[in-house]
Design a protein around this nucleic acid. Structure first.
Length: 915
RNA sequence: GGGCGCAUAGCUCAAGGGCAGAGCACUGUGCUGAUAACGCAGGGGUUCGUGGUUCGAAUCCACGUGCGCCCA
């Protein structure tokens, strides 16, 4: 029998089935780079409506991880979508360059200490370090296929950026938002330096544990008891001079307990334990809730000062007495409790850890040395109830390993309640759209209760607080003149200038103190919290650049930024611009493993973008990023990635089939809508419907639905039905036959739609497919194409075919039964006899060539009372060219093995444009 | 310990008081002209647990458990 396989028009394409993404992706990165596609895309849309996504700056330290990759990819998808939609949508990536983690690294590298280091050398190295990792991460982000202004990112260490920070500080200062106040910080008395949280190590220490009487002055709920005291427990006797309050738990039950030596107020459930220490039994005279104690007055046991009882949730009922010694100058919890209740914040300790003049009895004494003396004096005056030694986890300095203290120093604060700032923020939170909507609640409750923002850091790597101190009167000095001068100097020289130049050089000429006319100054040594840096990015990046847009249309970050960047940006923006810097805030969850646990080295469940790129390609990382509902935590595991790879293969193969059957087609050959076969019209309408739906998903940032829709479309409608059905027409009909051209017209439309709507996500593959075609009017890149227009599909046609598919299912089922019974092999061996009631009979009659829709050789449809479908083996002869069984096979003696249609096709193909 | 959130098939997701579904994966099978591809079919569920409301709960309520983010 003659071999006709050479005469059928099989698919032909240079677009391979196997992606080899890890190898091929760099080629497209290079092409996007050399052709400057990002700029061409944004320039194309210049002058049109803008859509601005403002990039939250990642920290310039270390390599990117799955979370940063997810974040950048989501941003990239949004920006690419908006750009293809025609919005002017520049994307300027940024980096957060100052701050502790880098400082930490540099100290390690230099084996140096903060007190002895050459600040300028140190800062130079820190800047180099930040730039190095910025460059590393930039390459890693680009490798993911993220398009943006990579040659001109924003960096918080840029001079202009730093100058903006100074200006923002001044603006807030001049409007009264910024002031100085005391706040306790970790302090190492041997290194004489402030310590950051990260520089603290906890170790077990023996510490004194003492129980003290604080005599009651006034306590309405416990009126009339003899010798009544609060029984207070502390492990840091040296902080007692700083005591300005006693905290009790509002929900805890308290008691007046009596012994032969007077009566005490303490938590009821601790009475037995506490008195048991002394081997005593106390009688409970009265009980009441902690709330009843609020505002009671007591006297300090050795200073004589009167202070009040406050309520605090953190008071534990497990140890101590339930009455907590509160020294707001010596502890963070104490501090916030003190602020809330207007307690004095005392800190009578100098930088060497010695008591100052304020504490007459122990003046000049090291606080740890004072512990036993204070104990003794308490014992002498009868205030000591009980004392012992306990083991206790206590903070130590990471350098000298000595125990640290909490010491209050003057810090700069941004007042959250000044000029209605908190209320304005709450109003702006309302006016912003938060996706998912829980975000509004989350940031709202934080803003509701957040304390003033402490802007000072006793660090080296950051932007200086632009304040001077008059040597004569000691007052802090910042005026419009000095602020503008500082801003200008930093704009020219960078913030190192603050450390380089003398005060005289930093100040305007002939500047004198506005308070006392003094003309000698020192400069502030503290720097600004790095969150102030990134919190002013909307000013530095959006306001300062006419290509940008303020407020931004979208901020898109991990949900941890409700506390971080969303909030700090909101504070500076509401303080300075009286408005939120964003219209919409979209958050995503965190990347976790298959069981929902966070990735950690110890669990051994870490997956990195780098290993995925090497193994599968960045495209897989991109698809994974949108494949799940990122508003919750996003899972990743080998299994999950395997599923993504499968999906990718399916979509890729679908594209390959489309391309393969369009090798001899150009858009000018497309048939008019009216000339198309109905199946092809349906396919075009279906694609339109899918494109509309996918567009709506992009609009809602429901990217996992984009993924699902895309995949289902390729599977259910294209592969299983339409493309399978088309094979006969594409391969076996005449090259220029109406059947084939009609099919190709549809395929072309489908391909172009598919490529455009998948390009924001499947950037590499869409570009690869796009580059493999050579039609007239083709753009330089898929990203220069316009988004498919949304227009209503022909619903009637779609409904009609949906009904047909329902029926087709039944037919397929019957064919399957016969195949299982080995009565027929391929479906082309099947003959389908359909008997249906009148209405359905009419309906099926509307479909041209139903054999081709069921992919069988014979279909007989007749009117009957019931729906009955029977399948048998066809008795017709198989055409050895198109494999369909036809009655006319063999009727032409020249071609004994093939059907009439195929004879015609062979004739046409050889006479028309042979290859 | 507190605030916010999540939990449905092996995986990713639907269904929001009325028979728990889809796609993938898996298994079987067909084809050998999308071929490391493609078609067809099938199996697969204590809807995290316990208790409650209800004629009826994956769904509403309460209490747990596990996990994540933020804070202490």
């Amino acid at each position: 029998m003659e071999d006709f396989s050479k005469t059928v028009l099989l698919p032909k394409t240079s677009f391979p089935m196997k992606g080899n993404l890890n190898q091929k992706e760099p080629e497209f990165l290079k092409m996007w780079d050399t052709c400057d596609i990002y700029r061409k895309v944004t320039e194309k849309n210049r002058g049109r409506e803008g859509y601005l996504l403002h990039d939250g700056p990642p920290y310039a330290n270390g390599h990117i991880h799955m979370g940063t990759a997810l974040n950048k990819i989501l941003k990239d998808v949004v920006v690419k979508y908006k750009s293809m939609k025609g919005f002017y949508s520049p994307y300027k990536p940024g980096w957060d360059c100052h701050g502790m983690p880098i400082e930490h690294q540099i100290f390690k590298e230099m084996k140096a200490e903060k007190s002895s280091v050459d600040i300028l050398k140190f800062r130079k190295r820190a800047a180099e370090y930040a730039m190095k990792f910025m460059a590393i991460q930039r390459e890693e982000f680009r490798r993911l296929g993220v398009l943006g202004q990579w040659d001109d990112p924003y960096l918080t260490l840029n001079r202009d950026y730093e100058a903006t920070i100074i200006r923002a500080f001044w603006s807030l200062y001049s409007h009264g938002y910024i002031h100085q106040a005391y706040k306790p910080i970790y302090w190492c008395i041997s290194c004489e330096t402030a310590l950051a949280e990260a520089e603290i190590e906890y170790e077990n220490d023996k510490t004194p544990s003492i129980y003290i009487r604080f005599p009651v002055v006034c306590c309405p709920v416990a009126e009339g008891y003899k010798d009544l005291s609060f029984l207070v427990w502390t492990t840091t006797p040296w902080t007692l001079p700083g005591n300005t309050g006693i905290a009790v738990n509002p929900d805890l039950e308290y008691a007046v307990a009596e012994t032969d030596k007077g009566s005490y107020i303490l938590a009821k459930n601790l009475v037995e334990t506490v008195f048991g220490k002394k081997g005593k039994v106390a009688t409970i005279l009265k009980t009441f809730k902690g709330t009843e104690l609020e505002g009671c007055i007591y006297r300090h046991p050795f200073i004589g000062r009167e202070s009040k009882v406050i309520l605090a949730d953190f008071v534990s009922s497990l140890d101590g007495t339930g009455c907590v010694h509160t020294a707001p100058g010596h502890g963070e919890e104490d501090y916030y409790a003190g602020i809330k209740n207007n307690l004095d914040i005392l800190s009578p300790v100098d930088e060497k850890g010695r008591f100052t003049d304020e504490v007459i009895d122990y003046k000049g004494l090291n606080v740890f040395d004072a512990n036993p003396l204070i104990r003794d004096s308490l014992q002498r005056n009868g205030s000591l109830f009980y004392d012992e030694e306990i083991e206790h986890s206590y903070p130590h300095c990471w350098r000298c390993k000595k125990p640290v203290i909490f010491r209050s120093t003057k810090q700069w604060f941004l007042k959250i309640d000044h000029d209605g700032l908190r209320d304005l923020m709450k109003k702006e939170i309302e006016a912003t759209s938060w996706i998912p909507p829980e975000g509004k609640n989350r940031i709202g409750s934080m803003v509701e209760t957040r304390p003033d923002w402490c802007l000072s850091r006793q660090r080296l790597w950051g932007v200086p607080i632009p304040v001077f101190y008059c040597r004569k009167c000691g007052k802090a000095v910042i005026t419009r003149e000095t602020a503008e001068r500082t801003e200008e100097l930093i704009r020219i020289h960078g913030s190192d200038v603050w450390m380089e130049k003398s005060e005289k050089e930093l100040l305007p000429e002939n500047f004198s103190c506005p308070f006392c006319k003094g003309n000698e100054f020192t400069r502030e040594k503290d720097i600004l919290d790095v969150w102030f840096d990134s919190g002013t990015s909307h000013l530095a990046v959006l306001k300062n650049d006419s290509n940008m847009k303020w407020p931004a249309d979208l901020y898109l970050e991990g949900s941890d930024q409700h506390r971080g960047w969303f909030q700090t940006s909101l504070i500076t923006s509401c303080g300075i611009e009286k408005k939120a810097p964003y219209r919409k805030v979209l958050t995503h969850g965190f990347v976790v493993d298959a069981e929902g646990r966070k990735m950690s080295k110890s669990l051994g469940n870490v997956i990195t973008p780098d290993e995925l790129i090497k193994k599968y390609g960045a495209e897989i990382v991109r698809i994974w990023s949108i494949s799940e509902n990122y508003q919750q935590d996003v899972r990743i595991s080998d299994n999950i990635i395997q599923n993504v790879v499968m999906t990718y293969k399916r979509i890729r193969n679908t594209l390959r089939f489309l391309l393969g059957n369009l090798y001899d087609f150009t858009p000018s050959m497309a048939l008019g809508h009216g000339d198309l076969r109905e199946a092809d019209r349906w396919a075009i309408e279906k694609t339109r419907e899918v494109a509309n739906r996918i567009t709506a998903y992009y609009e809602d940032f429901a990217l996992n639905k984009v993924y699902e829709e895309l995949h289902n479309y390729c599977n259910i409608y294209l592969s299983s039905f339409y493309l399978d059905h088309l094979k006969d027409r594409l391969y076996t009909y005449g090259r220029d036959s109406r059947e084939r051209k009609s099919a190709q017209t549809a395929l072309h439309s489908i391909l172009m739609t598919l490529l455009r709507i998948s390009a924001p996500v499947l950037s590499f593959t869409a570009e690869e497919a796009y580059q493999s075609i050579g039609w007239e009017g083709k753009k330089e890149s898929i990203f220069l194409e316009d988004w498919p227009e949304t227009c209503a599909p022909d619903e009637k046609l779609l409904e009609k075919w949906e009904k047909f598919f329902e029926f087709r299912k039944k037919v397929l089922k019957k064919i399957e039964e016969k195949r299982e019974a080995k009565e027929v092999h391929g479906s082309l061996e099947a003959k389908v006899r359909i008997s249906v009631p009148g209405e359905m009979f009419e309906f099926l009659g509307e479909f041209e060539k139903p054999e081709s829709l069921f992919i069988v050789s014979e279909v007989e449809i007749e009117k009957g009372n019931e729906t009955e479908i029977t399948v048998g083996k066809t008795s017709l002869k198989k055409c050895s060219r198109c494999w369909v069984h036809f009655p006319d096979v063999g009727s032409n003696p020249d071609y004994p093995d093939i059907c009439g249609k195929c004879i015609k096709a062979i004739g046409e193909n050889s006479s028309a444009n042979p290859e």
